[in-house]
Design a protein around this nucleic acid. Structure first.
Length: 234
DNA sequence: AAGCGGGTCAACCGCCGCGAG
DNA sequence: CCTCGCGGCGGTTGACCCGCT
C-alpha cells in the first residue's frame, strides 16, 4: 500500500494558478483566515489541494512578501546563513523578512551556488575549493565554520561578493519591489481596504522597503551573530 | 527568422515532525 | 505508548523566457 495522497486527487486542479483562483483564495483568507488548510479549498470554492493553496499563499500571495531581486546585503546574509544552517531554507527565510524559503532555495540553486563556484568556494561546505580538496585528502578537521565564514568575508573585501555581477544598487533593488506583478497589484487593489483592517502587517504598497534594502542593515556590519544568538535555530 | 540551450521560478511530490486522540 | 492526520519542509520538475548562433 502506498502512502495516502495528501488530498483527493480526483477533481483536483493542478498547474499554474489563474487570476480567478488567486482572487478566491485571497478573499477567503482575508475574510476567514486559514483555520485548516485542508478545508480551505472547499470553503473557498477552489478545486485545489490544501497544500497547493498553502503554497500559493505563502510563496506568492501573502501581503507581506517582498518581491524583486535580493539586495547584495540580503544575498550576503543568505550565504552566511547557509554556511551555518545548510539547506534549511525555511530557517534562512525566517531571517529575511518578506522572503520565502522557495524563493531563497531557487535563488541559491540558480544564482548564488554558481557564483560561489565561480569564486572558488564550495557552495556546500563554504570552503575554498582547492583548500577543501587538500583537507579532504588529509582528513583535516581544523577548519571551523566560523573560519570559513571569515574566509568568505575576506573574499568579500576583495570585491568578490560585491562583484560586478551585483550591479544592483540598493535603490535599484528597492525599486524592484515596486514593480509588483501586475496581476498581484490588480488583486491587491481590490482588497487593500480589507487588508489594512485585517492584517497587522502592512501591505506591499505601504512598506518602504528601501529602508531595508537601502540603509545599513545589521547584517551589513559583516556579521549576523546577533540574529543567530537571538533565535533558536535548533 | 528559427532553433537551441541555459536560466529562472512557480508548483508539485513525498518525507518528516508534531500534536491530538 | 501507539496511531493518525496535518502542516511544514526540502528536493525536484517542467513551463516559460531570453539571449545566442
Amino acid at each position: 500500500m502506498g502512502r495516502r495522497p495528501c488530498c483527493d486527487k480526483l477533481g483536483v486542479k493542478k498547474g499554474p494558478w489563474s487570476a480567478e483562483e488567486d482572487k478566491k483564495l485571497i478573499s477567503f483568507i482575508l475574510t476567514s483566515g486559514h483555520c485548516c488548510w485542508r478545508a480551505v479549498p472547499k470553503l473557498a470554492g477552489l478545486l485545489r489541494c490544501g497544500k497547493s493553496c498553502r503554497l500559493r499563499w505563502t510563496n506568492y500571495l501573502r501581503p507581506d512578501l517582498k518581491r524583486g531581486l535580493l539586495s547584495p546585503a540580503e544575498e550576503q546574509l543568505v550565504i552566511d546563513l547557509h554556511a551555518r544552517l545548510g539547506n534549511r531554507w525555511s530557517k534562512i527565510a525566517a531571517m529575511l523578512p518578506g522572503r520565502t524559503d522557495n524563493e531563497i532555495k531557487n535563488l541559491w540553486n540558480t544564482h548564488i551556488k554558481k557564483k560561489l563556484v565561480k569564486m572558488g568556494v564550495d557552495p556546500v561546505t563554504h570552503k575554498p575549493l582547492d583548500r577543501q580538496a587538500n583537507s579532504v585528502s588529509s582528513q583535516s578537521t581544523a577548519t571551523t565554520e566560523s573560519k570559513s565564514d571569515r574566509q568568505l568575508q575576506s573574499r568579500g573585501t576583495d570585491g568578490q561578493i560585491q562583484s560586478s555581477e551585483n550591479t544592483l544598487s540598493p535603490t535599484e533593488a528597492s525599486s524592484n519591489t515596486d514593480g509588483a506583478d501586475p496581476l498581484l497589484s490588480c488583486l491587491w487593489e481590490d482588497n487593500t481596504s480589507l487588508l489594512d483592517e485585517l492584517w497587522q502587517f502592512p501591505s506591499n504598497k505601504d512598506v518602504d522597503y528601501s529602508s531595508v534594502a537601502g540603509q545599513v542593515l545589521p547584517w551589513d556590519e559583516g556579521s549576523c551573530e546577533w540574529l543567530l544568538d537571538d533565535q533558536a535555530l535548533g
